[in-house]
């Protein structure tokens, strides 16, 4: 493909006096997984929300190459079009699965919601698709009718991923998808995500403060500090040959195992 899937130009977001994210520009190409790393408060989640149309930037533009509608200005779209985009061509995986799931309905209904939202009206087909996705995220099929309240943290996160991927999005935004999980649970989730990204040729923007997660899942990294991108490049370049003082500090802070 000859055009970037997502382009940010000069994206800036202020909260009062504080500039949460300052003049960020980049292009995400089809099949790429871009990691945004930096410590808490560096503006990475704010940037992610600006990219996904959840926050309106004070300056700059975000354009997306839509399969259905061609090149679109994410923040110039009507809310209706943007929400349609968000539930068809995009996915958004929250750190807290409770924010991304409907905790009051079964896992099957959680997965099926996107299908029903875009007009699926055959119960049997929806249920079968839910089953397929439950299997793909390695959850036992006998948990199909259980509510996520009865799920463990790792299972909830996998369910949230299935709920997002069921519409076969082209671009997935992920905000600390492995945050708050035990290390062994994290490893399984990372592995699963890696496989799904490969299998469905997903493009993704992933926010994490965990450089190990970034190493395993992303092709490229942007390092943010104080709202600015201080360094970017291939993931192994940034982690093996960090240039900026802040990145060097981050890399040096990883505990050896």
């Amino acid at each position: 493909m000859s055009a970037p899937l997502l382009s940010a130009r000069g994206v800036t977001k202020r909260f009062g006096e504080r500039i949460a994210c300052r003049d960020v520009s980049f292009e995400l190409w089809p099949g790429e997984v871009l990691g945004i790393v930096g410590e808490s408060g560096s503006g990475k989640t704010t940037l992610l929300n600006c990219l996904a149309g959840r926050l309106t930037p004070d300056g700059g533009t975000v354009t997306y190459e839509s399969a259905a509608a061609g090149t679109v200005d994410v923040h110039g779209l009507s809310e209706a079009r943007r929400r349609l985009l968000a539930r068809t061509e995009w996915g958004f995986v929250n750190q807290d699965a409770r924010e991304g799931l409907r905790m009051g309905v079964s896992a099957g209904a959680n997965i099926g919601e996107r299908l029903m939202a875009i007009g699926a009206r055959h119960y049997g087909t929806i249920r079968q698709t839910s089953c397929d996705w439950l299997a793909r995220v390695e959850i036992d099929l006998d948990r199909l009718d259980d509510r996520p309240t009865t799920y463990s943290g790792g299972m909830r996160q996998r369910l949230q991923i299935a709920r997002n991927l069921v519409s076969e999005p082209r671009l997935v935004f992920m905000d600390e998808p492995t945050g708050g999980l035990d290390v062994s649970v994290q490893a399984r989730l990372l592995d699963l995500l890696r496989g799904l990204v490969d299998r469905f040729h997903l493009s993704a923007v992933l926010v994490t403060h965990d450089l190990g997660v970034a190493r395993l899942l992303t092709h490229r990294l942007m390092v943010m500090q104080g709202g600015k991108v201080v360094e970017d490049g291939l993931t192994d370049q940034v982690l093996d040959d960090p240039q900026h003082a802040y990145t060097q500090m981050l890399v040096a802070s990883i505990l050896p195992v």
Binding site: Q237, D240, D241
Partner: peptide, 9 residues
């Protein structure tokens, strides 16, 4: 060697 591979810049 790593520079050749694009690992070092």
């Amino acid at each position: 060697l790593r520079s050749l591979y694009g690992n070092y810049r």
